[in-house]
Write a protein that binds this DNA or RNA. Sequence first.
DNA 1: GTATTATGATCACTATACTGATTAATAATT
DNA 2: AATTATTAATCAGTATAGTGATCATAATAC
Lengths: 167, 167
Amino acid sequence: MNADDVHAAEGQPAQAGAFAEITEMPGHLLRRCQQIAVSIFMQECEGSGLTPLQYVALSAVDHHGELDQNRLGGLVALDRTTIGKVVTKLETRGLVARRRSTDDRRFNAITCTPAGRALLAEVRPAVEAAQARILEPLAAEEQARFLGYLMRVAEGNNAHSRAPLRG
Amino acid sequence: MNADDVHAAEGQPAQAGAFAEITEMPGHLLRRCQQIAVSIFMQECEGSGLTPLQYVALSAVDHHGELDQNRLGGLVALDRTTIGKVVTKLETRGLVARRRSTDDRRFNAITCTPAGRALLAEVRPAVEAAQARILEPLAAEEQARFLGYLMRVAEGNNAHSRAPLRG
DNA sequence: GTATTATGATCACTATACTGATTAATAATT
DNA sequence: AATTATTAATCAGTATAGTGATCATAATAC
């Protein structure tokens, strides 16, 4: 910046080097990688109008057939409120159908529509292209090890998550 | 669920097995790991009232001395709007000071307050405990390799990020 | 058969993470 | 000097990711 710059006047900050360490911490790196993964997904899947979360949730509904929001949230590791909003978005686009279960009227019964299934099939190549781009900085063997580590970190810490996977 | 369950009637869903594959994709795993990393940070650093982002941003301000919001956003890889909100939150807690630069009146000059520096020092052990817990499912050698992979994925794809790191 | 408990969904609220439009100030061009 | 372009910040809007409170319904206890 300029003349009224404290930086120049104070010499060394209180915790010299501490910030550099933070940028090499797993928490910070995971945030950056997740941020990048979303960016790449949005680029590759632009035409579909789907976000990563919408794609995963729609796939889960397609794969599992009719299920309630709570179970769906567990399958994709999302809290009750967020999965509710994702379902609302998918519903307004006609990709899933939502109705109150007549059996137990507390439940929202979610099903995948033909339009939802068609979009899933259509966007699938772009999703796979995105995944390949995310891993591109690593060699093939490293990619496999990296995925293995991610799976173990996710599974090993699942109980510590605020929205654990409930398969 | 129950009797009016479409699942039982339809047999196999359209894309059998596709969802299982998605749960092993880097995009999904990175989201889950980031989600878990935030959960663990919030548990360990509960007393500080700091979120992961607030901690990283505050550290960056401390380390770099006075700087503007745009540069701060670049250092922590955040877009202009999000870094603005983080700074507002830190400002209301008195952890940073924000004033218009007299030199160039477009800039917000951000500085770390003594209270901010004190909190950083206080919370540091909890932050490191959180990082250790995130990596716990991996052996020491694997942790080092995992961090190396995360750094290469983040750096190699930096240009594809919607809010790239600008060191 | 009523009271208690448990559960699914929704609402209000906070924080993260962006885009596009706008505003204010500076820099570059002519 | 006046016009144009650029830049920092902010605002409105959308999506992700949660918490705690509330409401309706269902299951259980007594």
